[in-house]
Every structure is written in C-alpha cells, then in structure tokens.
Nucleic acid binder design. Structure first.
Lengths: 243, 243
DNA sequence: TTCGCTTGACGAACACTGTTCTACACAGCG
DNA sequence: CGCTGTGTAGAACAGTGTTCGTCAAGCGAA
C-alpha cells in the first residue's frame, strides 16, 4: 500500500461507492438494520429503501439475501421472539408460569413497536416461534391440562398476546404522535371516551351510559392481565378432578 | 328543453365525462363501492383509485366526501357491523347469548373478507360498534357479572373476535390463492404442520413432537369456540356466590 | 335572464412503495 | 493473465395515498 490510496482515483475508474467499495451485507446485518429502524420509527417506516439506506446501499441489493419484504419481516419477528426468556417447567406452578411466559412475551413484543402486526399477518413458523410454543405447551401439559386442550389453549393464548400487543402498539404510536406525555394522553383519551358514552341516549344505550365509569377504568396492562386470567382460569374445568 | 340536448355538443365545449356529466356520488355510494370491491377481491384491492373506478370517476373526487382512506375503511367497517343481529337480553340465558353474539359477529366479519383488519388497526367508535358493545354489556351485567368485570370482558371478547376473524381471513385468502378446494387445502396445511413438528429434534422439543397430532386437530371454528368458551367460563368466579 | 359564487369533479403531479431488469465491479479459480 | 459467477446497485415499472389547481354545473340574487 502506498500513498496512492490517499488521493481520489480518477472519476472514470472510481467505484460507485467512493469509500469501502464492498460492504459485507449479510442476512443478519439486514435484519439488524430493519429492527433498528422499526424500533426508532415504527413498522410503517420499514421500507426496503429505508433499510438499504441504513446500510448505505440500494434496495435492490437486499434481494440477494432476502426473498422479499415479507420474509425480511418474518426474520425480524423471529429474532424478536428470541428475546423471550422462558422458565424451566415446574408442574406445581403451572398457572404462574403460563402467566409469566405470556407477560414476558407481551413485554418483548411491546418493546419493539408494532412488530406484533407481522405475527398477526403471517403464520409464524420460525425457530423461536416453536421455542415459545414448546415452553407453553410443556407448562400446560405438565401442569395437568389434557394435551388436546393444552394445544388449543397455546394457540388461543398466542393469538391473544399478539392481538393485544398490536392494539397496544397502536395506542403507543397515537400517543407518540400526539406529543403528550403518556399519563396525560391516556387521561385525555379515556376522558373523551367517557364523555362520549355519556352523550349517548340513555334510553337506547342504558348499560354503556350507566357504566361509563367502569368502561374507562384500567389501563392496557390491567386489561391484558384480566383477559389472560380469563383464559387461564377457563382451563380449570379440564383439569383432572373437575366436574 | 329542445332537441339540442340530443345531439353531442362540440368537443371544445364537451364535458370531461361524455354521458351523465354529473354523478350523484355520495358518501353512501362510495362506501357501497368499497364494500363490493372488498367482498370481491379483498382488502388489498381496495385502493382509492379502484373504488373511484368502480364509480366511473377519479380518485380525487372521493376526497370531497371522505377525509381519507382510513375514514372510508372505518365507515365500511361500521356498515358491516350493522349486519350483526342481536338478541333481546334474557338473564337466564346469558352464557348462551354472549356466545351467540360472538358467533354472529365472527360470521359477519368473516363474510366480508379481511375487513377484520381495519377493526384491529383502528379504535372502533362508529354507531354500530357501540350498538354491539351495548348488547354484550347488557347480556353480561343482567346475567350477574359485576359491571367492572363485564366491561373488561366485553373489551377482551371483542378483541378476541376481531383477531380470530382476521386470522381466519388470512387462511381463507391463502386457500383462495392456492386454487385448491377448502378441504384439500386445510388437509394439506395441517399435514405439513404435522410433518414439521415430527421433524423437530424430540430431545429439545419433546411436547411439540409428542403431541403433533392434537396440535393440528380442529379447524378454525372449533378453535374459535374453544377460546370463546375459555373466556366465558373464566367469568364464573366473578358471579355472585362463587368462591 | 344573467351574473357571480360556491360546490364538487377530476387530470396531473408528488413522493412514495415493492419488485425486477440489467449492467457492472470484484473475487476466486483455472 | 483471463474467465466466470456472485453480489452490488441504478434505473425503471406499476402501483399507492394525497394534494393542487382548474373547470364545469347548480343555485341564489339582481
């Protein structure tokens, strides 16, 4: 290497990218960039061009490593699922454990903006998806839930988690867009919903009108855990020794 | 009026649309066109240009009646919810009635392709949305569920219905795209999933491997009602006279 | 009737999107 | 050294939601 590399080469011999003419650009790097973009600006900002830009390249280059955008999003989703920490099954604590797994899953999904949308839009088949499913199924079956009911329960609970995480991300993006702090935003929002219910004609909507206050009670977390508890305690009657 | 209107005007004075120079083009007509397009070709086919084309006009014309695409989709969604038939609350049959409302809602959503996606993407505030909410809340409260738990349960059940209807529409569009008949499609799909579970290393995925058969048991309807039953029977312990 | 004004229609354009085509630079191999 | 295959990208295609500015039609008033 001599000093030649210090002065710019003549333009007609210059590579299209002046410095670092050949980037490594791997599948992993692309998924990394997509996730970083997702976390910063949300799923809508994740376009092939923006991801490529993040890597200082063009959109067409991504297609050498990834079949299409759907595959990229599924890869990103499965990478996110990899962050979920799972407990060792303990039959004595199966209720607490299924609850822990669900809460942990919700937390991890919520930590990555509206990534939950891709779990609803695609049938999850990635390696980390089956890892979580195995854990949930193991906890339920070793806890005494019959296999058939345990299998369906895993399916339903997973759907519930994804749906609620997605809904939660919607409120979060609305809150972010409003510019208000979280507390003020939810207070305003629930206040508006409450007022709306109170403007309904009580004759036609007696229950919504009457119970407007409890309808706006409880934030996203309380509601998530309430529904989760319904699903789990609904399994009671399938346990051995139940009517 | 003389015969002048029968002969075509000279081109330099001709209106841009040769015949029927002014269409009525109302909000309702636009929602109609959007729904018809949705039912025929799915939500992805519903673009402002396609809806306008359906009405023999340009996309820009729609914006005189509708703020943007989101508002149009919410209007279409609420119109769909209007098709849901609701029973008169009968406290003695509250379990059966909440089940009926949920099933009816699922049926109506499923009958309109992937309209359920817009219910997940937006906070539903339309008149028919509150109509269904009022009915569910009334059935639960008059059945003996305490107001707070009834309110949250309505929220959770509605989320569950939307999420499952959306997931169902995904499978339906996949099946339509595959060209196979329904029976063959689900048999193939469940067969593939089953085979996939059986290729997993049993040491690391003992439960999925062992119970691959029950995991692929039951179609969408069975699973929907199983989850619904979990949610409803999970309300038992809030009834007066429960431990 | 005729003049203005408001309302709605709508072609063109803007800034995007996912994806494909095609040319091309570079690495490893013979 | 030359050849070949792989990965890199610019350009282009067909589409998207939305806005701008123009223009026609209807209507109330003079």
């Amino acid at each position: 290497m001599c000093a030649m590399s210090e002065i710019p080469p003549p333009p007609w011999r210059a590579s299209r990218r002046s410095a670092a003419p050949r980037k490594p650009l791997s599948r992993d790097a692309i998924v990394d960039a997509a996730l970083s973009l997702l976390d910063r600006e949300g799923l809508d900002a994740v376009s092939m061009r923006r991801v490529a830009e993040e890597l200082n390249t063009g959109a067409a280059s991504l297609y050498a490593h990834v079949a299409n955008k759907d595959e990229l999003l599924e890869l990103a989703y499965d990478r996110v699922l990899g962050e979920i920490r799972l407990p060792e099954p303990d039959p004595a604590r199966w209720r607490a454990q299924i609850r822990e797994i669900a809460q942990e899953s919700y937390r991890v999904l919520a930590a990555h903006s509206d990534i939950a949308r891709v779990s609803l839009a695609n049938v999850p088949t990635g390696p980390n998806s089956v890892r979580v499913a195995e854990a949930m199924l193991g906890v339920l079956i070793s806890g005494g839930v019959p296999p058939q009911q345990a299998a369906w329960a895993v399916d339903r609970i997973a759907l519930y988690i994804s749906a609620d995480a997605y809904e939660g991300s919607l409120y979060q993006s609305r809150q972010r867009a409003s510019g208000k702090p979280v507390d003020e935003f939810v207070a305003d929002f629930f206040g508006q919903v409450h007022d709306y219910y109170r403007t309904l004609p009580p004759a036609r909507f007696p229950y919504l009108y009457e119970h407007a206050d409890v309808l706006v009670q409880g934030d996203g977390e309380v509601r998530f855990e309430f529904g989760l508890e319904l699903l789990i305690s609904g399994l009671d009657r399938f346990l051995p020794g139940a009517g």
